Simulated assay, not measured.
Amino acid sequence: MQAAALSKNNTAAPRFSLRSSELPIGVVAEQLGLTLRAIRHYEEMGLIACGRGPKNVRTLGQSARARLAAIADLKSLGLPISEIVDLLGEDGACPDRLKTRLRAQLEALDARRTAIAGYLSGL
């Protein structure tokens, strides 16, 4: 087995390099708490565009990572992926529609909280 070449500061040099803004899919998945399968699915749906690195590894640039983070955030807020597709659009977020949808989500949660509190007070 070959040892990695050492740079001048005695650290192992990478065997390959990506453009500085590109990260491998595994690193991005770990950072965002997503599965590789989910990221590949979002790519297949056309929500994000992945590049390719050495050995055909999917890579994500800064804009794809930001979009993926927005998708993850919206999913964690309870929005289904079908709505997220519509709200984000192809060219980025539709802020007015997104704000309207999130306000409606918040109103529904407030109503649910009120109903739960009322039920609890009757126990």
Rank of each mutant, 00 (worst) to 15 (best):
K8E: 15
K8I: 15
N9G: 09
T11Q: 14
T11D: 14
F16W: 15
S17P: 05
L18H: 05
R19E: 15
R19K: 13
S21E: 13
L23M: 12
L23W: 03
L23T: 04
I25H: 03
G26T: 04
A29F: 02
E30L: 09
E30T: 12
Q31V: 08
Q31G: 06
Q31W: 05
L32D: 01
G33D: 07
L36T: 08
I39V: 04
R40M: 01
Y42G: 00
E44W: 00
M45S: 00
C50E: 01
G51S: 13
R52F: 13
R52H: 14
G53S: 09
G53W: 07
P54Q: 12
P54V: 15
N56K: 13
V57W: 05
R58T: 04
R58V: 05
T59K: 02
L60C: 02
G61P: 03
S63F: 15
A64F: 01
R65C: 08
R65F: 03
A66E: 14
A66L: 14
R67F: 01
R67S: 03
A69P: 01
D73L: 12
L74Q: 02
S76Y: 04
G78C: 10
P80D: 07
I81P: 00
S82G: 07
S82E: 12
S82L: 11
I84K: 00
D86G: 09
L87S: 00
L88K: 01
E90N: 02
C94Q: 07
P95N: 03
D96V: 10
D96P: 07
K99M: 12
T100K: 00
R101Q: 10
A104R: 14
L106P: 02
E107H: 05
L109K: 13
A111C: 15
R113M: 11
T114M: 10
T114L: 11
T114R: 10
A115F: 07
I116Y: 06
I116F: 04
G118W: 01
G118L: 03
G118T: 03
G118M: 02
S121K: 10
L123Q: 10
